[in-house]
Each structure stands twice: as C-alpha cells, then as structure tokens.
Design a protein around this nucleic acid. Structure first.
Lengths: 246, 246
DNA sequence: CAGTGGTCTAGACCACGAG
DNA sequence: TCGTGGTCTAGACCACTGA
C-alpha cells in the first residue's frame, strides 16, 4: 500500500475504518478540523485524503454539515484504474487464472491512439488472464506491454521481457511491475462498447456465444513517460455490473 | 458556465485555449508558477483548475517536466456526470428528441439503493429523451425525479412538478433545474451492463432487436441533500464508444 | 544546475446547515 | 450563532527532469 505521504496514511486509516465498520453507512466522519488535530496537520492534507476517498465512492460531503459514509456498492468498481484485486477484493472472493503467461510477440492491435514508432518497433509482451469474483468468471483481460528497456534506480536498466521468465508476484501484473521496474499506474483512458461475445470469449466466461458482453479498450498511463500499458477487457455483466463514481 | 471562483475562470480559459487549438496535442501548457503570475494567485488555485482539466481528460502531467495537452478523444465521454450537450457538443453535432415530456407518475424501478420512504411517497416526474450525435441516435435516456417541494432562494418553495408545464430550457433538463430550482448536479453513481436490446429500444436506436447495447443505471447527486435524480440509459455503441479518464 | 510538479504548513474569509 | 466544508494566500521543502 502506498504510504509515503501523510495524506495517504490518513486515506488508508479512514478507508480501513469504513471497511471495518467503525464508520457505518451515512454516519458522519470526523470534521476536517478534528482530523487536523488528530494527525497534527493542516486542512489541505486532510482534504487530499478525503478527495481520494470521494473518487473511490467511499464518502460524500454536504456543505455546512459534514462528510459522510456512502452506502456499500453492489457492483464491481472496475471502471477505475485500480487493480482488480484491490477493487473487487474489498467485498468478494477474488481469483485469477493465467491463460497465457507473458510472451513476446508483435503488437497486433490499434487502441485509442496509434502506437508510437518506438512501440511498433519493439513489439510487445502479451498475457491473458481470466478473473473471478466469488467463483464466477467476470472478466477476460488481454494485456500488451511495449517491450522496452526501462531505467531502474536511476542508473541501471532492465529489459521488460525479463518479466516472461518468472511468475507474477501474487498473480498481480501491477505489483510485479512496481517491484521489478518501479512502474506505477497513475491513470487510465478507456472506451467501452457492448458487443456479441465470440466463441472463445464466451467459453471462457461460461456464457452462451453471441450473448452481450462489455468490450473495453484501455490505455494505462504510468509514471514512466511514454510507457503505456494496453488492455482489452471482455466482461460478463450478468451477475455483477461494472460501476464507478464521480 | 460556472465562473464564480478564480480556479473556475482559470479552468475555463485553459479549456477554451485547448479547444480553440491555441495549445495543441502534447504541447506544453504554462507551468504552475507562470500561471500564478498571470492570474496573480497561488499554486493551489492553479492546481485546482488543472485537476478539473485532468479529470475531464484534457491534460496530463509529468513530474519534473510540465503539464501537457492530451490527444483528442474519438469517443463520447459520456461516462462522466456532465450533461450530454456539454460533453458531446465539443466535437459533434448534438440533437435531442423528447419522446415523453415530463409527467407525474409513481416510481416504477429500483435503482442502486432502495428509494427512501419520502421518495416512494411523493412519486416521480418521468421523461424520456433520445440523444443524437452527428445524426446518429446514440442514447435513449429515461429519467425519474422525485416529485418534491424544493426550497428556492432560501425563503420560497416550488413544486418540482411545475417542470411539467413548460418546455425544457434548450432541451436541457440540467439547465432547467439549475435556473428554476437552483439544483446543480455534483456527482454520479452508475452501474453498467451489456444487455440485449428490447424491441422498443432497438427501434428508437435504429438497430436490430436483441443486438447488444449498454444499459446504465445512474443516480445523480445534487447540491440539495437527499435530492437525487435517477436515470436509465440505453446506448448504441456501434459507431461511438463511451469513454472516460482517470 | 534551474525549472517543474508533489506535498505540506499556518493561517484567512466565505457560504451553507442547523439549532 | 457556531461548526461545517469551499476557496484562497504566501510561503516552504522535496523529487524528478533535462541541460
């Protein structure tokens, strides 16, 4: 968990208190000024923590009254850029099956923008994962990473393709990238469509071929400039809707 | 346009400069400190303006380098809580056909949360609109507003059902609510599914019955506490995907 | 190294809500 | 009237980028 900054510690503490039930639905959180005293800090810092929680749909604010806990979600908040486990694991049993371990190949697809020349040249590392929530397959994810050399620790560099050699940490791609390459996902662009499922996708998601699924094209933005991660997602929304908040 | 606050003026100026092409894709915006001087303000204010632009996908930042203009979107950013015209009108011809003018009826549906007792009692005002982008029907929207009495100008109250008596301002529900009732939409919860289109929906969207469409349930959060707007959206994503950014 | 954005302090005034 | 969140000032130190 991120914890380098004070506002992230406040965020984490409050989030845990909400998830643990210390603060229940629609109950009032401590005011900004009270939290300033608790953490010996200023309002900006508390407000940064609140802003994170608000973005993730945990709280809402009412001017003049206070900050309150939102009702629990009944769907998977998968339209944000957090990792699958982080989002879904808050209230569901999470499993991942790796259908294709990371392998090198050429870039097969056009996503939102045309790929840069560099990206086309180096090709990509491809992997395919099937995600489960409470034993139900809900999402098939095909991921493409540009096969670049990346600087690590300001001095050394590492070939990203070394990720093909060892299993993922905790089955998590994002965690593996963070630990081995200091890559952090900081943003996301996505385009969402409703489409008929092809035979292969339908079999994986255990649904009838041609039944409607969500088709999502994503470009993840990272802390390394010009390094993007591309994903295509196929989601079965029969049991769980996809959700987000603003 | 919102313009009461300095950060909103900065936001508006920068957004216009981007849309007008003064700042082109991937070109660098003035630094935070430069903008501080231009507007005779402090970094927090500039950062608030940047944060708005970042949320809407207009800019991205790179630590140590600067703030840059994002590439144009090629899909409709309709997963945010901005109004249809505001989001789609930036690059497309926008039209709205009112299929059902606002009428009073009882609440027919359960959305994310159960409705409050008050909401169940007062019933709702219902309207149905078909939205076009570049002459293509892209979205059918069914909207439900609790039929409450609302305080306006701190002293007087008005029945929301008076909205049934006159046509909408600019065909915009949000604008009408803002002008007549001082209601502002400040947030959004939504759950998204892929479903087969029913006959009526398909006819309206000019697609084949049972072809896949996006089904979105929304709860808009407003500046009036305990006043929510509920909408069900059916989206044809054949031509335009729905998009957002984080 | 200078310039950039990221975090943070210690205040201030305001508009809103409720009693 | 008082406490709340919303906006804003005028600084500060840091980590990152590129020359």
């Amino acid at each position: 968990m991120k914890g380098d900054f004070l506002y992230q510690r406040v965020y984490k503490d409050l989030k845990n208190s909400i998830l643990n039930g210390k603060y229940k639905t629609d109950s009032k959180l401590p005011s900004e000024n009270e939290l300033c005293e608790s953490y010996q800090t200023t309002r900006l810092t508390i407000r940064q923590a609140f802003e994170e929680l608000r973005k993730e749909g945990f709280i809402y604010k009412i001017h003049g009254k206070g900050t309150f806990v939102k009702a629990e979600k009944r769907s998977l908040g998968l339209l944000s850029f957090k990792g699958f486990s982080e989002v879904v694991g808050e209230g569901h049993l999470v499993q991942t099956r790796i259908l294709q371990k990371p392998v090198c190949k050429s870039f097969p697809l056009i996503f939102f923008e045309e790929l840069s020349e560099t990206e086309q040249e180096v090709g990509c590392i491809y992997l395919e994962r099937l995600r489960f929530a409470d034993q139900t397959p809900v999402m098939l994810e095909q991921t493409y990473l540009p096969n670049l050399e990346l600087s690590v620790n300001t001095k050394t560099t590492a070939k990203l393709s070394s990720i093909c050699d060892a299993p993922l940490v905790n089955d998590s791609l994002f965690k593996t990238l963070q630990i081995q390459f200091e890559i952090e996902v900081v943003g996301l662009e996505q385009a969402i469509r409703a489409v008929e499922s092809e035979k292969y996708i339908a079999e994986m998601l255990r649904i009838v071929t041609k039944s409607p699924i969500l088709h999502i094209n994503r470009r993840y933005i990272t802390n390394k400039s010009n390094f993007f991660i591309y994903s295509t997602l196929y989601c079965n929304t029969d049991k769980y809707a996809m959700s987000n908040n603003f």
